[in-house]
């Protein structure tokens, strides 16, 4: 399948939402969530990065979906290429094996999650991830609340990562401060029937999401494309996030 086939005559967001709804009707162990990112369509706007930060109320230094920028070729034929990098949700995740307290694991649907209340903050998972998809929460805040008391939206802003409502307290020792953190494909949104935040906000329609085990799903069609590329395939991590190059 080439890039345009997925677009002709259909709203891909609507199709992915219908795919998601079908997947949610199945037991969790029968779902195989995956994400595809079409590098030809990514325009490097960073909307996905920003929406991810907003969705998960991420503090400074914690980022789940940075977008790298690379100059390809030389003037006058130089052009930019972007690569959004969410968690790869590996089928053989190195981060899971190294956790000394089993605080991180792969769910039956393939999403790698972290129990913030069990994580001891050793950061072994961070050094072991070949994609640097985990970051550490140092407890910082975007706003200097010592200068002014802060607005309610700044200081009482819960996040719903892993389906758990949690109020983060900056500059404290309360989780998720002091924990490794990562993208979960917005599992809380998925279970509420919504696409991941980055997929929803991608202005170029470059991010696809769905259930690989559903042969009618758009993601399953894209997985058969000759353009499919996995990052660092040689490491044997079998990422569920793949790219169309």
């Amino acid at each position: 399948m080439n890039r345009t086939d997925a677009n002709i005559g259909e709203n891909i967001l609507e199709r992915m939402r219908a795919d998601l709804k079908r997947a949610l009707d199945k037991p969790v162990e029968d779902r195989r969530w995956a994400m595809a990112i079409d590098l030809e369509k990514c325009v490097g706007c960073n909307a996905c990065t920003v929406s991810c930060i907003a969705e998960n109320a991420l503090p400074p230094g914690v980022v789940y979906r940075p977008v790298t920028e690379e100059v390809v070729g030389e003037y006058p034929h130089a052009r930019l290429r972007w690569l959004p990098r969410p968690c790869m949700q590996c089928e053989e995740p190195p981060c899971v094996n190294v956790c000394p307290v089993s605080a991180t694991w792969r769910r039956p649907d393939g999403i790698v999650v972290i129990d913030y209340d069990a994580c001891i903050g050793c950061r072994y998972c961070i050094v072991s991830c070949p994609y640097q998809a985990r970051t550490f929460d140092f407890g910082e805040e975007h706003t200097d609340l010592s200068a002014h008391p802060g607005q309610p939206y700044e200081i009482h802003r819960p996040a719903f990562e892993n389906g758990v409502e949690r109020q983060r307290i900056p500059h404290s020792d309360k989780s998720p401060v002091g924990n490794a953190r990562k993208c979960t494909y917005c599992v809380n949104r998925l279970e509420a029937g919504m696409l991941p935040s980055c997929t929803n906000t991608c202005i170029g329609g470059a991010t696809y999401f769905g259930d690989l085990s559903d042969s009618h799903a758009l993601i399953a069609e894209l997985a058969g494309s000759p353009r499919v590329m996995h990052l660092k395939e040689e490491l044997g991590t079998s990422p569920r996030t793949f790219y169309l190059s």
């Binding site: 094996n97 190294v98 000394p100 307290v101 001891i120 072994y124 490794a180």
Partner: peptide, 26 residues
């Protein structure tokens, strides 16, 4: 002092993951 949650260090004794070399080490 290096641990993000110093007072959870004992978790390695209670819920070790022996696939992790860190658990073995502890």
């Amino acid at each position: 002092f290096d641990l993000g949650h110093m007072f959870r260090a004992w978790e390695v004794m209670l819920r070790p993951n022996f696939r992790s070399m860190m658990a073995w080490m502890v």
